[in-house]
Design a protein around this nucleic acid. Structure first.
Lengths: 139, 139
DNA sequence: CTGATGTTTCATTAAATTTTGAACCTAGGC
DNA sequence: GCCTAGGTTCAAAATTTAATGAAACATCAG
């Protein structure tokens, strides 16, 4: 499952552990349960925090932070995918346009030009739709 | 782009090359254009063939095979995703059920049980829907 | 059958990714 | 101000994944 979403095993394990847990878990508990290093736990929590997949619950008078999953798994996954797909689409845009222009310039077969145009339109549409479907933090 | 779909760079490059090309390309042409080894080209073509993303055009009296992309890019991508996601869902099923059963058995908090049930339902529904949305070869 | 072309296989090598752990911050109690 | 629990950073080590290329295989022309 982890690999499909493109996150390291350890990150997925941390999330799964928090998701399954009966209550928020602290740093040491996570490390102990998964048997991984402090560095990995820290980085994993950082990643999950960054993607708003977990929340910390600070208890009054306690030093430690305790972590639990954000309410909506669906929202978390969408945010995660968004963060991977969008940059790729943006990066692809100029290259696609160049290739299409080249093909037109050198008078390629109509079928090829049609193929490239369609791909271009897809990419553009996806970029337009993205913000609507997957609102960035604050919408 | 390649990494999102979980295919090696070389495979993606081969597909892109064929997609952009004005006509079907043969083995040597692909190797020469991308500057990769024979082994990589062979493996890449095997993968793309296996996922029905490319077709070979055999010319009469010619020994070499020449390759071109299958007509629908959309269908290709869907097939590719299907082949990655479905097995994962199937594999997840038993584990999910076990975790849920455990939680119920030990009388976990209702909130936790609700969370796990929902995940379970999602997984089941996804498995049911998959064959309808993404028909396997021959439908 | 034989030789040559075209392709596949797979053990080895190389590259990319992940994990580790020790050094380093930081905030709060004393 | 100083000490310590709690956490972060990041270079190096370990692991995983992909690419290479030599040897094996297949197919066809002669």
């Amino acid at each position: 499952m982890a690999s499909i979403l493109g996150v390291p095993r350890s990150v997925a394990e941390i999330y799964a552990l928090l998701y399954i847990a009966s209550s928020p878990l602290d740093f040491d508990h996570i490390q102990g349960r998964l048997g991984i290093s402090k560095g990995s736990v820290s980085q994993g929590l950082k990643f999950l925090r960054g993607h708003e997949m977990i929340l910390s619950v600070k208890e009054k008078g306690a030093r430690r932070e305790r972590w639990q999953p954000t309410p909506s798994l669906a929202a978390s996954l969408v945010a995660l995918l968004r963060s991977q797909v969008l940059p790729a689409l943006e990066q692809a845009q100029p290259g696609l346009q160049r290739v299409l222009a080249d093909a037109q310039a050198r008078g390629a077969q109509p079928e090829v030009i049609e193929r490239l145009s369609r791909l271009n339109r897809w990419n553009s549409r996806a970029l337009e739709l993205a913000p609507l479907l997957l609102p960035p933090p604050g919408a």
